[in-house]
Design a protein around this nucleic acid. Structure first.
Length: 114
DNA sequence: ACGGTGACGACAG
DNA sequence: TCTGTCGCCACCG
């Protein structure tokens, strides 16, 4: 084919969305883990940038992606600043001061693909 | 076509 | 522990 974006047919954004959709209910993951899983561990910022555009699509559980400390850094991009927290708490996360307390317990590594 | 942007992460002090 | 700084790079106007 004439067009080859990177080495795939799919844009980086699309790959990110594919991963995010696979996050199990009640689990969360991080921008860095997603980036690493895609083979570009230094592109965590791009993952965040991709999530910024995820509102244009549906069925993308963007609230399940937090930063490496379990901090809800993207909460302001939701429909109201507390929606992200409410969604996560509804899935069993314990959040205090915008930080997931049981972060290690519900962290999902995309590499496990389960 | 090109450079600013950014929901990050690692590291230094 | 906490804060600031720097490198990172795909996207979009």
């Amino acid at each position: 084919m004439t067009k080859q974006m990177n080495s795939r047919n799919e844009s980086f954004f699309n790959k990110v969305y594919t991963i995010v959709k696979k996050i199990p209910h009640g689990k969360v993951t991080t921008y860095g883990l997603i980036a690493r899983h895609l083979g570009t561990s230094k592109s965590a910022r791009i993952v965040g940038y991709a999530m910024n555009s995820s509102h244009k699509f549906s069925n993308i559980p963007a609230h399940r992606v937090v930063n490496r400390n379990g901090l809800l850094t993207g909460r302001h991009h939701f429909f109201g600043s507390s929606l992200m927290q409410e969604l996560l708490e509804n899935e069993g996360a314990i959040i205090i001061d915008n930080k997931i307390k049981n972060f290690k317990d519900i962290l999902w590594d995309p590499s496990t693909r389960k």
